[in-house]
């Protein structure tokens, strides 16, 4: 049954933009897939290994800025830039992880906030990277090789492929040795270490992979919107939103971030369409209330609801 549902979801995602041809439904779904990708990347570090990062925007920005700057100043293909951005983000992640993984719980989370804020301020004051003004990418040149498409369809399938790759990687890692080590570290790091789990090395693995995938998403974002600046790719609010997608969906599970993105993105879009027109942020009032409701009634995330539904169906048989 599980494989059946997964296959149905994959087919639905592939057919979606061919059925709904309008730019808005396609844009909305691109955002869903992008958030699912970011949530999946967060989940490897926060859900599997239990290290709560509230600084994912640092890696997202590293990806967006690396590919954009390489293209603008050296004419490097964004695809090469994507790899370079992911490598840079992973290196950055290792440099952050090495000292910061000594910290536990809230201290680690606040350290990631601190690093994210420093990165944001640094780029804002860095003239070469466009400073507070930001960077525009040239519009001309289309096609797969240029990582630039005239319509949304190309972007749609690229981000869908990125997501599929990330989910497959997460599933594979979770099933292997790393997955078991991460679970042991998450539940009780001291106990894990006492039985010989190399905790630091596996936490470093988690943050490096998480950062590389997040940077890929950052390059995609830059190529999709053709404009980046610190408030759009490096804010604390983005880091929190990434965490929110994974946690409200269900941290530590494979489908959690996908479910979280599939519910939260359309939800915030719907409330802003229905209520946001007044410019008085009624949509965010509703959004905040919904976050509270989910946290109270489904503390393990939306996955909990899905599980209960499935149990009820199988009980009826």
């Amino acid at each position: 049954m599980k494989i059946g549902i997964a296959a149905a979801v994959v087919v639905a995602v592939l057919l979606y933009p061919l059925v709904l041809r309008g730019p808005y439904p396609q844009h909305l779904m691109i955002l869903v897939l992008l958030n699912a990708l970011l949530g999946t990347a967060w989940n490897i570090l926060g859900g599997f290994a239990g290290q709560i990062s509230l600084g994912q925007a640092t890696f997202f920005g590293a990806g967006a800025y690396t590919s954009t700057l390489l293209f603008q100043h050296a004419g490097v293909s964004p695809w090469v830039g994507l790899v370079a951005g992911a490598a840079l983000a992973a290196a950055l992640a290792l440099a952050i992880g090495y000292p910061c993984f000594r910290l536990s719980g809230h201290y680690f989370a606040i350290a990631t906030i601190a690093i994210g804020e420093i990165a944001g301020i640094a780029v804002t004051n860095w003239e070469f990277a466009g400073g507070a003004v930001g960077l525009f990418l040239p519009v001309e040149g289309e096609g797969m090789g240029a990582f630039k498409f005239g319509d949304k369809l190309g972007y749609y399938y690229v981000v869908a492929a990125f997501l599929a790759l990330s989910v497959a990687l997460a599933a594979w890692l979770r099933r292997g040795r790393a997955g078991y080590y991460w679970r042991a570290i998450r539940e009780d790091q001291a106990a894990a270490r006492s039985v010989g789990v190399p905790a630091l090395r596996y936490k470093q693995l988690a943050i490096a992979i998480s950062a590389a995938l997040t940077a890929m998403a950052g390059t995609f974002y830059a190529q999709y919107l053709l404009f980046i600046d610190p408030p759009s790719v490096l804010p604390l609010s983005l880091s929190i939103q990434i965490c929110l997608v994974a946690v409200l969906g269900g941290a530590g599970t494979l489908v959690g971030p996908l479910l979280g993105a599939a519910v939260l993105v359309p939800l915030s879009a719907a409330t802003s369409v229905a209520l946001g027109g007044s410019g008085r942020s009624l949509d965010l009032v509703v959004y905040g209330a919904l976050i509270m409701v989910i946290a109270v009634f489904e503390p393990s995330g939306l996955v909990g609801i899905a599980r209960r539904v499935r149990r009820r169906i199988s009980a009826q048989r």
């Binding site: 942020s281 009624l282 905040g288 209330a289 509270m292 409701v293 946290a295 109270v296």
Partner: peptide, 12 residues
């Protein structure tokens, strides 16, 4: 997220 949601709610 319960307190974060409350913050979003109150601010807006």
């Amino acid at each position: 997220f319960a307190t974060f949601g409350l913050g979003v709610f109150l601010q807006n």
